[in-house]
């Protein structure tokens, strides 16, 4: 099946006062209808930026290159007006913090159907009933009354439901969920994950789920791309990547998951910090923190992305190596 959204060699450079920062450096990924692609990585790994750049929402100071296909259209080089229409009509967004991603002075109903009014030309009356329908769809009780309420009258979890309803207003082909559960408490997180998974099953929407919660990835994703310092270090079907993690970084991430059974045992961490995007090393960006540390080649040469099994690729010179424990 043709992908809904695919990027090839996507690079994003942000001009800062201290020089150009390469936030995303030659990334390829694709998401097919009905599938969920999870982008995982630490803060600043470029996972959000790659998606924002692909959909034309990167900050103005960002320079984007590479090829971006949305459905049948090549987005790079397209005038902003056309990109804007395609984005609003075919892509829905759910952002991280529902406390700040809704406009405080407009009613939720108005915000929910705004995109549909813009792109599908709904009349005022149709818009209102559509708003109620959408709020109902995401499980907001007595949607008929709540449609005229303002965001501050909702709890965090309910607001995130509103944001999801908003994202689905035009029945998009793709839903982008940018850490949609990070700002919520644990029980609400589970409800939101379940809601999105359920809506995806019913509507057949493709989902790009940006997260650093590997538990969520294991539960809902079909494919996963692990990002570090603007590059993909490992990607493939979620079972393959999680079942046989081939990059030392992926293994470290999986090992760093808190284990409820371990009780009060110390959390496992990855020593060190990611490199600054202003000053990336010539070789593997993970090399300084890497538990394998093959040889000088790792320090000076960027390893290519190589296949290890069907659809499973990894960016390392030593896919079969075992981690040193020292």
């Amino acid at each position: 099946m043709k992908p809904v959204l695919a990027v090839e060699d996507l690079t994003v450079t942000i001009d800062t006062r201290r020089g150009p920062a390469r936030a995303v450096a030659g990334v390829d990924w694709a998401v097919r209808p009905g599938e969920t692609l999870a982008l995982v990585g630490e803060s600043g790994s470029g996972k959000s930026m790659s998606v924002l750049a692909a959909t034309g929402l990167a900050p103005r100071t960002a320079r984007v290159s590479g090829r971006i296909h949305l459905l049948d259209t090549e987005l790079t080089g397209l005038p902003e007006q056309r990109r804007r229409r395609l984005r609003g009509r075919h892509v829905g967004f759910v952002f991280q913090d529902p406390m700040t991603s809704l406009n405080p002075v407009l009613t939720v109903g108005r915000q929910v159907v705004e995109a549909a009014q813009e792109h599908l030309g709904l009349t005022r009356r149709a818009a209102r009933s559509r708003a109620v329908e959408l709020l109902d769809l995401v499980g907001i009780p007595s949607a008929g009354q709540r449609v005229d309420a303002y965001p501050h009258q909702f709890s965090g979890g309910m607001r995130q439901r509103v944001v999801i309803a908003m994202a689905l207003a035009c029945e998009p082909d793709l839903l982008i969920a940018d850490e949609p559960t990070t700002a919520l408490d644990v029980t609400t997180q589970a409800q939101i994950v379940e809601l999105v998974a359920d809506l995806q099953r019913r509507l057949g929407t493709a989902v790009v789920w940006i997260t650093h919660d590997l538990g969520v990835v294991a539960g809902i994703a079909d494919t996963v791309a692990v990002m570090y310092a603007g590059r993909i270090l490992e990607q493939g079907p979620v079972d393959a990547v999680f079942g046989a993690p081939s990059h030392p970084y992926t293994r470290a991430l999986l090992a760093a998951r808190p284990d409820p059974a371990a009780g009060d045992a110390d959390l496992v961490t990855i020593a060190g910090a990611p490199p600054s995007p202003l000053d990336l090393p010539p070789g593997c960006a993970f090399w300084p923190r890497c538990p394998v540390r093959g040889d000088a080649r790792c320090e000076h040469e960027m390893p290519p992305l190589v296949p290890v099994s069907a659809g499973h690729q990894v960016r390392t010179f030593y896919p079969q190596a075992t981690d040193r424990r020292d």
Binding site: L57, R87, G88, V163, A169
Partner: peptide, 8 residues
């Protein structure tokens, strides 16, 4: 950004 994401 939410409003921009809607393609308004």
């Amino acid at each position: 950004r939410t409003a921009e994401a809607k393609g308004l």
